[in-house]
Design a protein around this nucleic acid. Structure first.
Lengths: 353, 353
DNA sequence: CTGAAAGCGCTAACAG
DNA sequence: CTGTTAGCGCTTTCAG
């Protein structure tokens, strides 16, 4: 009974109504009598109808607009990569009349988020991709669109209670554990391991605390009682605390939770001349890559911002066009970059995204 | 003058001919006078025409068939994963009338390849995805289709001289280097490192030799003269040589180049009771994952067969439908799996592919 | 050789 | 409320 190629015309015939009526119930456009509705629904249950998307989008003049809210990409390598992922997805959906509007806000200024939010209200997009860095200001923003039943997907940072159609990111806690694992590779004995939060605004702290918890959990689970974990939270200007830390003769490894922070530590470590301290950081930023290749940084954990954003647009487009519901949460693998495999990542990214 | 939305009708009007004629020159169907041809070409140069794919595929009744030639997936976890990638891609392209026909051959029997090849000749597919395990028998097979200008993409193993529209795989040499890096993590001093080829048919040896070269190169570049690299090539029945190897007190790390081989070594290592030997293998097979989680295996390098196959089908479909030419070679990143990040991979794969 | 015209499956405007 | 109909842009017969 569930044949593959059923057209709208077929179900109309089966139901004994016209295609117009079928189309109306399919799209819940109203203006259908109870009895007609029933007939169509019965027919729909008998045969398995899958709309032909080609015909659908060809026959409709609707243009979809997706609003993308991310931190200013100009000044920031990480967010630039997100933007590239969006662009890639956008180009693939362009033929279906999807259009992307970017709204950049300033990472260091909550009010800038409210400003772009205002612009998004005006634009009345059909879907939204947002990285909700600012918790408090994101809440009313998304509530507004939830109310208008405009779908939105979150990426990078999650706010579960806004009930997005999907969240795309990483498990930060697990990420911290991998950080611990990498920082301690080859160290079986006692020692000191540090987790540093650098350069980051206060708003982001939940993000970083999660990683720190994972980092600590790793040592508790795998080297209980044998290892001291230190935590330092610094802005880039306070190099003193770090210099002091690097002087600790027991220090064996460091995880820096912010993608931009690790290269600063790498520089200080090189200056100090110390060897044997494992440095673990995040993401394929230019500086990070350079220090990884020289061996000062030992490992980078890749958050894959490109693919996160790419997937976000895909989910939105599929939802809008096909009413496909995406997974409510997809957590990316915790990819480990080393001096030996970094080139394989860089080459791949160039070709694929 | 290259406006975006130019229909075939527009260029017809501009050229002063009918849409039928334009369509004929667009598809080189012949039956067009020199003068008409000229007019259309002139028009085509004036305005930038991009065909509407939706309309194109809707208006044509052509069904595309893609032949997939891979080793029998029933008995083999690795190839099963490839097959799953094909299925995923197939489901995404189904609406465009793409159909997949599988042709499984026996990894241990060259003649079985010739048999399925025969079947493929009969089927006259429009595109081919093949993993060319058997060099000699693949050559004439692909020559046949090159001659018929049926596009084919290779994955997993490359044969550059057949000039596929694309090859998807990994850089085996670099992969071996990463294997060396991982096997030697935490070992600064002298020592023995082994690279083992297990379970594999002779036909595959090029594959494995490449990895071994990379493995050796890693040590030469990073620990010159200080480390002894041993190489052993074994079928699964010859456990003696391995037991002997494991008894070597200088042994620090092992890379097993075949995805199925590593779990056998892991079992023997556990039995021997020795500690501190780094074990590095390939791929997320069930047994491998189990040994990784218990810590007997330290690292796995992920070849991502799912995504390789998935991408292969995508390239073929895009080529057939859109005449898009894929990158002639895409080398996948050398993904490193550890006890701490393995779950993040397993969860991700479940959701995405 | 060439133009006209009938679809492909779906949407949406329009009479009734 | 409901059926009919004219497209969407491209392909593909089919007369001429």
């Amino acid at each position: 009974m569930s044949n593959s190629k059923n057209r709208i015309k077929d179900i109309a015939k089966l139901a004994g109504v016209s295609v117009g009526t079928v189309d109306r119930v399919l799209h819940e456009r109203g203006k259908v009598s109870e009895v007609a509705m029933k007939k169509v629904q019965d027919a729909l249950e008998k045969i398995n109808y899958e709309p032909n998307l080609l015909a659908r989008t060809l026959g409709t003049k609707k243009k979809h607009q997706i609003a993308v809210l991310i931190p200013n990409a100009e000044s920031d390598e990480y967010w630039l990569q997100s933007k590239e992922g969006v662009e890639q997805a956008a180009s693939e959906w362009a033929q279906y009349d999807f259009q992307i509007a970017y709204y950049f806000f300033d990472l260091s200024d909550k009010r800038s988020f409210n400003q772009v939010a205002e612009a998004v209200y005006q634009a009345q997009p059909d879907g939204i991709l947002v990285s909700p860095i600012f918790y408090q200001e994101t809440l009313p923003f998304l509530a507004f669109f939830k109310n208008k039943s405009v779908p939105y997907v979150l990426f990078n940072t999650n706010i579960p209670e806004v009930r997005a159609i999907s969240f795309i990111g990483q498990n930060l806690y697990e990420s911290g554990k991998v950080g611990g694992e990498l920082a301690s590779l080859g160290h079986q004995g006692y020692g000191t391991f540090a987790v540093l939060h650098i350069h980051e605004e206060i708003q982001n702290s939940v993000h970083l605390i999660e990683k720190e918890k994972g980092f600590r959990a790793y040592f508790e689970e795998n080297h209980p009682g044998r290892i001291l974990v230190k935590s330092l939270s610094l802005s880039s200007s306070q190099e003193d605390g770090i210099t002091e830390l690097l002087a600790d003769p027991d220090l064996n490894g460091i995880l820096v939770t912010t993608s931009k922070g690790i290269s600063m530590i790498a520089a200080l470590l090189e200056k100090s001349g110390r060897k044997g301290i494992k440095l673990v950081g995040y993401d394929l930023l230019e500086n990070n890559i350079a220090y990884l290749k020289t061996g000062t940084i030992d490992f980078l954990i890749h958050q894959n911002p490109r693919r996160q954003a790419y997937l976000g647009i895909n989910y939105l487009a599929n939802h809008l066009l096909l009413k496909k519901v995406p997974p409510s949460e997809v957590l990316f693998p915790l990819e480990i970059i080393t001096p030996q495999n970094v080139n394989s990542y860089l080459n791949y990214i160039l070709k694929i995204y």
